[in-house]
Computed example of a mutant assay.
Amino acid sequence: MIVPILDMRFSLDSKFISIFVILLNIFIFNCKNSSSGFSKNNKFKDHSISIYREADERPIASGVLLNKNGYALTVFHAVTGYENKISVSYANFQKLKAKVVAKEFLFDLALIKIPELENEEGLELSDIIDRDKLSVGDDVYQFSSAYGLKNSLFKGYISHLNRIETDITYPQIPFIQTNGLSFPGSSGSGVFTMSGECIGIQRANFGYVVGGSVGLVIPGSFLKLFITNNVQ
């Protein structure tokens, strides 16, 4: 079962509170164990944006700022139907107006424009790598808005490099499978190596439990093609 990992509204029963506490403890543990090495790549934290729909008080998805005139990359399913009704937060900027300027259903990718971020630096095409530079077991990282917690650092690992015909909506995409990164609100976030290279964009959680942390990442080659075709 594929679960798009947008943030969801849960009833605060005891079961959910227990799950949330467990996940929060995992998050704190990961931060403590990865902050020293990953602190060298804080610029990738600065590329992370949080995405809101209309008047939402907390983000429902994530995205990556590109180094081109205020553009950012996220997933199609997070913004479709809200093309002119989204805003983003970034670094010290809160609730900046944004709009969708390009989208590709076949890749589950969307390009958004944030005029107030036109002078900010972001991800370059040269920062995005292909799967042939990756191996199963490689550590990967992301800054995302999981559970509405903006700019949260998560650490995981690659568990498969060519997961095809698993997502029935996108059987043609050879996803990179990860463990430890996929939670509600992390759709659209960039996934990076320790050296700061982007391997792709987080698409969905795989399995029957929301937040089960087995995730499918849209690979870097798809990102590069989409950016090249849509960013002027």
Rank of each mutant, 00 (worst) to 15 (best):
V136I: 15
F192K: 00
T80N: 13
S34G: 09
L125E: 09
N151T: 07
K68T: 05
S187P: 03
D138A: 04
S195H: 00
I158A: 04
F93K: 13
S186A: 14
A55S: 14
L66F: 01
I5F: 03
T166G: 12
D139S: 11
D56G: 06
C31M: 14
L223V: 02
D138W: 01
Y141N: 05
N205I: 02
L153N: 08
L106V: 14
T80S: 14
E104M: 11
D127H: 00
L24D: 13
R163G: 06
D132W: 00
Y90D: 01
C31G: 12
E118C: 07
N92V: 04
Q202N: 13
Q202F: 02
T80V: 14
K43N: 10
S89Y: 03
P174Y: 13
S145M: 02
T74C: 07
V100Q: 10
V101Y: 09
N33Y: 09
E121H: 06
H160P: 03
Q94N: 14
G63F: 01
D46E: 08
I227W: 01
G188Y: 07
H47L: 04
G188K: 04
S186G: 04
S187F: 07
D46N: 12
Y71M: 09
L125S: 08
G207N: 07
S14P: 07
S221R: 10
M194D: 09
G185E: 06
G200V: 00
K15C: 08
N67S: 08
C198R: 00
I28T: 15
G63V: 03
F27A: 13
T169A: 11
I173W: 08
P184N: 12
I22T: 15
Y170Q: 09
G148L: 03
D108N: 11
R58S: 12
E57N: 14
N84I: 06
V214M: 12
V231G: 11
A110T: 10
Y52P: 06
V231P: 07
Y147M: 09
R131E: 10
V214T: 12
P174M: 12
C198T: 00
L73H: 04
V100L: 09
I199S: 00
G200T: 02
N84R: 15
K85N: 14
V140N: 01
Q94D: 14
I201C: 04
L66C: 05
G212N: 10
V88I: 13
N41E: 09
G190D: 00
F27M: 11
S159W: 01
I5N: 10
V79W: 04
E116G: 03
F183M: 13
G137F: 05
L225M: 12
D139T: 05
Q172S: 11
F10A: 10
L66W: 02
Q94K: 15
D13R: 09
A98C: 09
K43W: 03
M1E: 14
V101F: 05
I51R: 05
I176P: 00
S36R: 15
K40L: 07
N84Q: 14
Y52M: 07
S39R: 08
G137L: 06
F38Q: 04
F16P: 05
I128T: 01
P59Q: 07
Q177V: 03
S36I: 11
L12T: 13
G188Q: 09
S144R: 01
E118P: 02
G148S: 06
V101Q: 11
K113Y: 13
V88M: 07
I22R: 15
T178R: 06
S213V: 06
H77D: 07
G180L: 04
N179T: 10
S34R: 02
I173Q: 10
